[in-house]
Design a protein around this nucleic acid. Structure first.
Lengths: 342, 342
DNA sequence: GTGAAAGCGCTAACAG
DNA sequence: CTGTTAGCGCTTTCAC
């Protein structure tokens, strides 16, 4: 006996039909509001249903209809709180349309990600939401399966794919400009490993703000997008002769790591070094000091993600959402209207 | 046409069978390693499978076998990073046994939780992992469905249920004793709302350590188990005349909130106030200062959870796992061997 | 070793 | 309005 086959016989549609004195088709009609059923029968069926404690079997329905009403959600790493918050938002958006989310975490392992996607395909999810830069293999896999896939946490156009993400370049530009408005002229960047070919949007935004102000690029620290990465990137940057007075970190986690590194070095934030982070997860609100951050439009992106993945023929293209600066203590003082002081 | 019904016809078992010149039964045999198949046919079937890019339909299999090989995981709140980390560990444990995890987040809303459970039942999950104090309704629901359910994030015996959780009382006791060893005599507690009837394990542990040392209980701040809760609990405690010199916080998030509150009040940690937290998520490693914490045995609990939920007849009872003190900066200095200084 | 056939629980025409 | 019936894709006896 398979592990999942519970002993007690489950109540089935046939049982309900018998008790109500109708055919199974009618039970289907009242359950799905299809066809037309007289009020009286509807009533009897309803009664039979909760008399028996009947629970429809969604798998059987999926088999019959071809739709599982399930959406796969592959997150780069659930241990990153930002993605936890994101998952919650997407789940809510899916629920609003009557879909459930099958959340899965790759934790940075490509092999694991591939296995997860394979699994989701076999479960016949109605759509797939894949976070970050899925490798070619992954894209090929989903394309072959014919399952609608939309990528999130992606910052720019991906030929032939449908993607949604924050306007990271503009967010980074705004963050850096804000730092410049605070009077900084040496502004470092904490970011991930260099992309092969082409510059990362956040790096481009940082560079653009600097260029617009006629400033030279500050030092760059490259590391993983987690706390440890931010820590080591900051150590690396501040080990150099010429230290910046401000930092733009490409993720909240990196900023938190950088904060720890600076603290260790005896550098005060924001007095000695200012920081602005990117993402805007809750963690930034309670760090010491609270982080000024560029917050992604999580709810809006979630809604869009669900909308797109449920479309019969989602038009390929990139959907960009604003990422807005949230002013807090880590970049210095502000006047009541938000004007940077100092 | 239902949304999920993709136009392109999917490759089915019959197609594979035809190409390989065998019956669908044989295809099943090679896919599941059941029955006996000659090496030659096995080979042909294998070829046909990847020639066609065949993907088995797990729903159909679930219908036929009665097992979905899916385990439902209902987490109190994915926006709490500790649960994100926990989910990752449980997913790994499930994967090791060939099961997938259907992760779902209730975010504290009982109604949402009920809906999720209902949904999981209809999807015929093979087991249910429910975090925290599921209301009576929930327990009734799962009991009626006959789905094996095990509760996690629970600290003590629940009559008739199978539960796993950290030894919170002992963890809290150890944390508080450690604070006492540092020389503190006024030790406050940050914890959730009082349970109706009976004391929370963490509160009991704190009290016991104090009693064992002949100390009077310090002030208690009650609030939600999140950062905001820790913040307000700390503000509340330190608004009083008599301020403690140390705090035991019942969750990492609360400790982080308390840290922010203390910082705001100009109180230094650990010089003015020492803190120890409970859970041991990554966030505690990079707070300022890094938090001494009582770390739960996440991997061990995850494995146990999966083991129990997969047992045909899991024996009801509570499975307790050690929660171990991890020494860091928030409680003061230590000698090389970990002996508290000061 | 391999195949035929009877379901698993549900939906969706199509008749009546 | 309601019932009959033919699948959905897979597993699993039971013969051959």
């Amino acid at each position: 006996m398979p592990v999942g086959a519970h002993g007690g016989k489950r109540v089935t549609r046939a049982d309900v039909a018998q008790l109500a004195g109708v055919s199974t088709a009618v039970v289907s009609y009242v359950l799905n509001d299809t066809g037309s059923v007289s009020a009286a029968t509807r009533q009897r069926v309803r009664e039979a249903i909760d008399m028996l404690g009947y629970q429809p079997n969604v798998n059987a329905r999926a088999l019959a209809t071809g739709s599982s009403r399930l959406i796969g959600f592959i997150v780069p790493g659930l241990s990153n709180p930002f993605f936890g918050e994101f998952a919650v938002a997407v789940e809510a958006a899916a629920a609003a349309r009557g879909y459930s989310l099958l959340i899965t975490s790759a934790e940075g392992d490509e092999e694991v990600e591939r296995r997860h996607i394979q699994n989701l395909i076999e479960r016949r999810v109605d759509g797939l939401l894949v976070g970050g830069d899925a490798g070619h293999a992954v894209v090929a896999l989903t394309a072959a399966s014919g399952i609608r896939t939309v990528l999130f946490n992606v910052f720019d156009e991906r030929p032939g794919l449908v993607t949604v993400g924050p306007d990271a370049a503009e967010g980074a530009r705004a963050a850096t400009s804000h730092l410049i408005a605070h009077g900084h002229t040496e502004i470092g960047l904490v970011i991930g490993a260099p992309e092969t070919g082409g510059m990362e949007a956040r790096e481009a935004g940082w560079l653009r703000a600097l260029g617009d102000a006629g400033l030279a690029p500050g030092p760059i620290g490259r590391a993983e997008f987690d706390r440890a990465g931010g820590y080591s990137a900051a150590r690396q940057i501040f080990a150099a002769e010429r230290r910046p007075t401000a930092l733009f970190a490409s993720s909240d986690l990196q900023a938190v790591g950088a904060l720890a590194a600076l603290h260790e070095l005896g550098l005060r934030v924001p007095q000695d070094v200012s920081i602005v982070s990117f993402d805007g997860s809750e963690e930034t609100e309670y760090s010491i000091p609270a982080l000024t951050t560029v917050r992604q439009s999580v709810a809006e992106m979630s809604a869009k993600l669900i909308e797109l993945v449920l479309m019969p023929e989602p038009p390929s293209g990139h959907h960009s959402f604003p990422a807005r600066l949230v002013l807090r203590a880590s970049c210095g003082e502000h006047a009541a209207d938000g004007t940077p002081l100092r």
